[in-house]
Design a protein around this nucleic acid. Structure first.
Length: 266
DNA sequence: AAGAAAAGCAACCGCGGCCCC
DNA sequence: TGGGGCCGCGGTTGCTTTTCT
């Protein structure tokens, strides 16, 4: 169709930057024609998002960023855009490349014992895109940070890896000596949560390793969804791996909640 | 020094979801 | 309610650079 492909030239970059600075990028499909570029809208969008955006951070990833990627990948799987959203200035494409070229290999090298990589003896398949946090609950479950009860209460957990989407019934169960909860008891927080609960502010995954969390500005209470394995600042895990398949994340939620009954009514 | 192999990275492709008509 | 258009995402490709032999 007469459209150019392949690497972008500096001239093309300048045309795209100038156009977007003047007009924004409301319609990517129409943009190249209006800007006078012989590129498809998709190519323009990709070039802008991955390379030309002014807030892009260039250069190598530092160790803190790499650790963050590893942790987030463990929780989210191959959801590069979700990971990128928590790394300011980094793009999903860049993170994906770094993962495949550096981090995956490095983690494999560090795996002296088979398939274990975390401080919590958690089973962890580097080649898998399966997240520790099932998609339907990713960044969506919040439990109050109450003092931890006994750490020996949970004996078995069934996996939730069959979960497929937001809104589905959650089939996770956690059973212990004195408790047996269904994960249906947990509030599922979607996009509407933040608008429906103006007292809460999302708390980004931050450099202080506080994890994914939110904060109630009225009660000054923090609600965390950080995985127990991370030895979260101020909320140390008991150092014991209670469950397989990364389910200690859920266990952490339960013990912080002090039981599902004590979850706040969102 | 030169060719081969490996690594790195930018860009492309196809699919799914959302929105609007 | 179904279809079309558009956007964003994740997987993949292929070109360039670096390292190895």
């Amino acid at each position: 169709m007469g459209l150019k492909r392949g690497p972008w030239t500096p001239d093309e970059d300048q045309v795209l930057i100038s156009y977007i600075q003047r007009n924004g990028h409301g319609n990517w499909r129409a943009l190249p024609k209006q800007a006078g570029l012989l590129r498809c809208g998709k190519s323009c969008r990709l070039r802008w998002i991955n390379y030309l955006r002014p807030d892009i951070k260039r250069g190598n990833f530092n160790s803190e960023e790499e650790e963050t990627i590893i942790k987030l990948h463990e929780m989210l799987g191959n959801r590069w855009s979700a990971i990128a959203a928590r790394l300011p200035g980094r793009t999903d494409n860049e993170i994906k490349n770094v993962w495949h070229t550096h981090l995956k290999k490095r983690l494999k090298q560090n795996q002296v014992t088979p398939a274990t990589t975390t401080t919590n003896n958690k089973s962890f398949n580097l080649d898998s895109s399966e997240p520790t946090i099932p998609r339907l609950l990713e960044s969506s479950v919040h439990a109050p940070m109450s003092p931890q009860p006994s750490s020996s209460e949970i004996s078995s957990v069934t996996d939730a890896s069959t979960s497929t989407g937001i809104g589905e019934a959650n089939n996770i169960e956690i059973k212990g000596e004195d408790m047996e909860y269904s994960m249906e008891s947990f509030p599922l927080i979607d996009e509407s949560f933040w608008s429906d609960n103006p007292g809460f502010l999302p708390d980004e995954y931050s450099s202080d390793s506080s994890g994914l969390s939110c904060f109630n500005v009225d009660t000054q209470t923090q609600y965390s969804v950080a995985p127990m394995a991370d030895n979260v600042q101020g909320w140390p895990s008991d150092g014991v791996s209670h469950v397989d398949n990364g389910m200690d994340f859920w266990y952490d939620l339960f013990i912080r909640a002090g039981g599902a009954e004590e979850l706040p009514a969102f």
